[in-house]
Design a protein around this nucleic acid. Structure first.
Lengths: 243, 243
DNA sequence: CGCTTTTTTGAAGATGGTCAATGGGTGTGG
DNA sequence: CCACACCCATTGACCATCTTCAAAAAAGCG
């Protein structure tokens, strides 16, 4: 069984110093586990959650549901992320949250989180910081989907996901689990599924990466990062991987 | 002379209740005024600001500077906004901030803001909430630039700007100041300048809006909102305009 | 009033979307 | 164990849209 509190602690320690009292405060948080099958929604646009989700296993994705029923994916979240921490202060969800592949989330009641913030402001600042990095990732997505070529766009997304996974020790050598379909990639990068396929073929041909069976493999990080114009500064990480 | 503290108080009151002590804490904040001419940078990508800017007059814009020198605008900020409040917790700027037309900003030292958060957590929550709405606006921009037609994209941007301006009482009837060039609109929406012009012509022809001489005029809000698929929910405003 | 910047318009070409068909892999039920 | 069905990936062809390039008109500025 996974230590849920530990997952949060490790995540916050990626950038913030936690005191002994901070650790106690985190360990005091209660939660309920929720297991999700691939594609299942954890919360939907318009709803008002009473708790915040912590990714404990697998991956979650945020998406806007459009009028015509199509989806626009906004971001992907891995173990340790708090993908709907905004719900603590914003009443209604302006987007939905679903499982990308099989996933497990711990739901922590807002009221306990707020109590923790009052008692230990530093923890509030640490989580605030998380939400700010989130925003930086959104900003980068705006630029990615608005100003880059299809090839660069896709390379950038893969670079970001792999880099973040590596920082959180979720990679396996040069590979990582990424149980996402081409259609979902299209809904993320704003391209038609045919283009997604052709673009992936191009990247494969360039020997910089491979993506098959829900597994992303990096073959040449330097080249891939160059193609995707990937500069990890916007992730605001203190402890960057060696690459 | 404008009352800088009042600008911030009014902004926070758009969604948060402030106590008498909160008001005192805000009034205790010191600041330095900075006047910017059109296009001038307030802070650049990579720098580490020591204070946060509050828009006191005019408009500021955030943008990514790309390798090839082109810009991608990320958001626009009006009187009352704190466009770089993220700088309080994130060391380095991952984007730049410039004046859109003539503008005035008040720079408030981070250290005083942090002291205020410790003393009055509720004010921290109010500003945190601001940064979360910011993130929601970024999310909407991802969807806008990735999944909408050129016409819808532009209509949506104009709807958002006008709606936000109206909430902050910055409109003049059906018009607002928007001293932005077509080239900048292109760098915002991810379209070539020729397309920007042709798209604006389309919207003009539809009698839903006009945009000339740095002034945006709404002629038919309902239609424009429909064209842009604009639903203000993501702005998380408590007090919505009558429209 | 002359200069610069911005807007406007036209035409050609590139790019990506749409549509349609094929193939591979997996799971189910007979 | 095989047949079938379904989902997803793959590929090709055509077409619509947007970008690029170029040039003229209009507006802003000293």
């Amino acid at each position: 069984m996974k230590d849920v509190h530990r997952v949060l602690i490790d995540k916050l320690r990626e950038h913030s110093r936690l005191s002994a009292d901070d650790l106690i405060a985190i360990r005091d948080l209660s939660f309920t586990l929720r297991e999700l099958e691939s594609g299942e929604d954890l919360i939907r646009q318009g709803e008002s959650p009473k708790g915040a989700a912590l990714v404990v296993d697998g991956m979650l994705g945020r998406y806007h549901l459009q009028r015509d029923g199509r989806r626009q994916f906004l971001s992907f979240h891995m173990v340790g992320d708090l993908p709907d921490s905004q719900g603590i202060f914003l009443e209604r969800m302006d987007h939905s949250l679903c499982a990308i592949g099989h996933a497990v989330a711990a739901i922590i009641p807002h009221r306990e989180i707020l109590r923790m913030f009052e008692a230990r402001p530093g923890l509030g600042f640490a989580i605030w910081r998380e939400t700010l990095v989130d925003a930086a990732i959104f900003r980068e997505a705006i630029t990615n989907n608005s100003a880059r070529t299809m090839k660069a766009r896709m390379a950038h997304l893969f670079c970001e996901l792999f880099y973040r996974a590596e920082v959180s020790k979720l990679t396996d050598g040069n590979s990582m689990q990424l149980p996402i379909s081409l259609a979902q990639l299209g809904d993320t990068l704003g391209m038609a599924i045919a283009t997604v396929n052709r673009t992936i073929s191009l990247l494969r041909a360039s020997k910089t990466m491979d993506f098959r069976y829900g597994v992303l493999t990096i073959r040449n990080w330097q080249s891939l990062a160059k193609i995707g114009e990937f500069d990890p500064g916007y992730l605001h990480l203190k402890r960057a991987p060696a690459r």
